[in-house]
Amino acid sequence: MNRQAKTLLVAAVAIGWLVFSGIKEASVYFKYPSELTPTVLAELGHEELRIGGMVAGGSLEREGSDIRFVMVDDGEGQVLVHYVGIPPDMFAEGRGAVVEGSFTMEGVFEAHTLMVKHGEDYSAEEHPDRENIRSDFGTGIPDPGG
């Protein structure tokens, strides 16, 4: 192996290490409200977490930039979410949302990031629910950046 090849190999290993170590550090769990059973909640504690689900109808309360709502999914279980800031476009009751943050002592999910879920509900077998947001191309719905 000549020197050139050795240097290249070292650089390749360094880049690979950078990427793979980065991904482990940056990943957080993703849960649906119905999965957050008491056992799971106890395990999670105040760990950083992402929750995906739907904003329950009639649950959205806004006072200025102070927002509270309940997130649900198909199963049983709900999560009370508190978020301070301006929600992104397309955020509304009955629509998908993803929040990132952690649980407080009172069991409220304190979100520092609120995103709108989009474009993942495609199913061609039955004509899909056209009410759903279908961001079929281009850029995603923004992360307001908390």
Partner: peptide
């Protein structure tokens, strides 16, 4: 153009979101 559109149309000051579509 996608980035330009996201910045001007989505209106939240972001221009690249590392979204899977991007």
């Amino acid at each position: 153009l996608g980035s330009w559109w996201a910045y001007h149309e989505l209106g939240w000051g972001g221009w690249w979101f590392w979204d899977p579509v991007e």
